[in-house]
Write a protein that binds this DNA or RNA. Sequence first.
RNA 1: GCGCCCGUAGCUCAGCUGGAUAGAGCGUUGGACUACGAAUCCAAAGGCCACAGGUUCGAAUCCUGUCGGGCGCGCCA
Length: 567
Amino acid sequence: MAARAESSDFILFFYRRVGEAVGNLLDGWGFPELAGNYTLEPASRRGHGDMATSMAMVAASRTGGNPRALAGKLVEAMQADDGLEKLTRFEVAGPGFINFHLREAALVSAALDALALGDRFGSRAQENPEKILLEFVSANPTGQLHAGHARYAAYGDSLKRILAFLGNHVTSEFYINDFGSQMESFGATLAARYAQDLGLEAEIPADGYRGEYPRHVAGRIRDEIGDRLRDRLKPAPTAEAVDFFKRRGCEIVLAEMEAELGRFRVDFDSWFSEAGLYASGAAARVIENLKKDGHAVSREGALWFKTARFGDDKDRVLIRKNGEPTYFASDIAYHAGKLERHERFSHLINVWGADHHGYVARIKAAMKALFPGRDEPEVIIGQLVSVIEKGERKQMSKRKGTMVTLSELLDGIGVDAARFFLVDRSHDSAIDLDMEKARLKSEENPVYYVQYAHARISSIIKKAEAGGFKPVDHAGYDTLSKQERQLILSILFFPRVVQGAGDMREPHRLTVYSRELAASFHTFYHDCPVLKAEPEAASFRLDLCRLVRNTIATSLRLVGVSAPEAM
RNA sequence: GCGCCCGUAGCUCAGCUGGAUAGAGCGUUGGACUACGAAUCCAAAGGCCACAGGUUCGAAUCCUGUCGGGCGCGCCA
């Protein structure tokens, strides 16, 4: 276990060694917990070494000592640790920072260890993996996916890849809202479009769906069934006809969504139908249980869930006066079911748009009532994507036609640029998407900067192989240039970055990282010849190139972006 | 009115759970290819980190308030 951590995550290993070296000292100061919980960060590149810690200053604030004096004592303790002394030099600086200058041999051997791990570098294996159900996108099957869905798809899928890479067992799921009034209205719209297609008089219902897409779906249905339903449409479509259009329409829309998501490199492990919760009786059972436990009561002709008891602002309706269940009712059944499936998920994550954040307290309250003491579902709120048209900012809306579809996005700028663009910014900030600019500026997308580094390296490696490059032993290489140091250090932090991206649910850390790593590589490349260097340097640098290539490829893979060998 | 998110360079955004002189890309200006890929590199210019208080040895980061923007506050989903 320790050996594994040592080889796959040098920085973590180093962190622990430092903590161990000063453990007794901190104990004596009455501050033992600091050893396992101090900050260690890459030093700002101004002659402050490779890494720095502020632990002496933190200790000083707790023990009342002089920070620089404490730093001196901490350094003495570290120097007394032979293993640590072999890895680094020390320096007390500024108000009490301890700077670490890693020794060349340590950097070189850490880099070679990382290289040996290949595409597993940065990953973790867990003995008891968490079983996570990660739900995202979950669009209504009544239209096309738009850029907002694309954002959550890119985010959710990246998060899935990252969490899995960190040793968790992750199942991704698309919850299909194929029940309720919106579906009814979609079915009615399709019936009307189909009728119009056949030359019949028919009007789209007032609450129906405008635009081209329903017409397209109706057209596909007509291709399948011809005019067979003609006589079920007048004077108004029969209930059976509407039901048919609803069901078949839903299937067609979902198939198109799945294909489109596949093109976007987002493959769901599971598609879960809301209607199925009613068909199977699961929804009814949950409602019965709530009644039995006294959580659900009748009032004003409706059935209410007393969520206010569990932290919600007010109670919520489960079954309306008209007898129809609300979305909330099936959602409770859905979430309860997640915990009862055979996979026995230990943790639930939902990715929702900011327009649903008012719903969070409600679902958490419901789960608290049903499963007291269980881990609460984790809800991640992603901010919205707006469309900019002619300088005006508009919310994405199916009905108003102000939307950029996923398919337009992919046709316009491509999968790699779209995915990189969408995960590159924190899910906490809103995105404005101007398709005109996006198309014009797509070649400026930073994804190409990163991919170019990958292609460049691939080209060097190919050249080396084609030219019969003969490596020599370079384990003792110890004359690192400034650029090599920087590059190795960037790489050694990769496992920490992945871990942070997973823990904080922030995939954008990987795109940011990949850009920085690419920059370190380009600088290195410019100043340090690889194949033309002295044999030992050339051998080492070629390995360093391989390591950078692996690390860039992994960073990109974790956000679903390709790493081309040539471009 | 209440709740959540955001406000950092001309523009788009990073800034890790508080650390040293706040970073990158685009744009602007000036340099670097008979070279392993110039889709690159180097340099310059550009900042009251919205504003006001507070906590701290130390705040862009945490707390309170104000202003500005987005999103919610349905027996819609």
